[in-house]
Amino acid sequence: MIRFDQVSKRYEGGHEALSQLSFEVASGEMAFVTGHSGAGKSTLLKLLGLIERPSHGVITLEGQHLGKIGRSGIPKLRRRIGMVFQDHRLLMDRTVFANVELPLMIGGMAPPERSKRVRAALEKVGLLAYERQLPATLSAGEQQRVGIARAIVAKPMLLIADEPTGNLDPTLAVEIMGLFAEFQQVGTTVLVASHDLPLIKRMRKRVVVLDHGRLVADVAAQEVL
């Protein structure tokens, strides 16, 4: 499903955020990416969504070489990926419902089916009661969950989440991680960046550890203690 082959990323005028990273994630697998702040977790996820391009190396997604996707191909790729962003990225002048509806609207789904899906997604993150509200009137954790609902609403084949539980209390964090695990169970590939080690351990999924842009450990799910 996902394959990184000797991938390096150097930001303009900066040091290497990722260096010679090689790993694979199988289809339907769920994995955590962890590491210290600045280790390159967000960068790794951004490369998958073509928000950034690698300086070196090859990334393939379902056999497709991401480097060969031009600017016009990016929207199509992103429609297949559900992305949860560290900074939510919600539209502040549209309701919670409209925010979650966005990927379906872009995908061209008929309105009746759309509302059904949006409600289901909002229910999953426990925000059905907030559908008419504007994001600004929600707490940080609630906004984060709106972002999660938006990422899952189109049933993407790949779900990538950057610190999705950063603003959530422990109970809610566990619930959200459980939601991701549910998606994995129906065949979605899930990649979550997080430095919440206790939570990661609790989930018993594969863990990829980054340190200054290098892959220093790759722990299989069975080996997570």
Partner: peptide, 29 residues
Amino acid sequence: TQPELPLNESPLLAETPSRGGRTRARPVA
């Protein structure tokens, strides 16, 4: 701690993942 959810009743999880929810049958609509 994994919550028990009726997966098959949820319109979100009932089917296998789609290609971004695009319904190709109604591009014009």
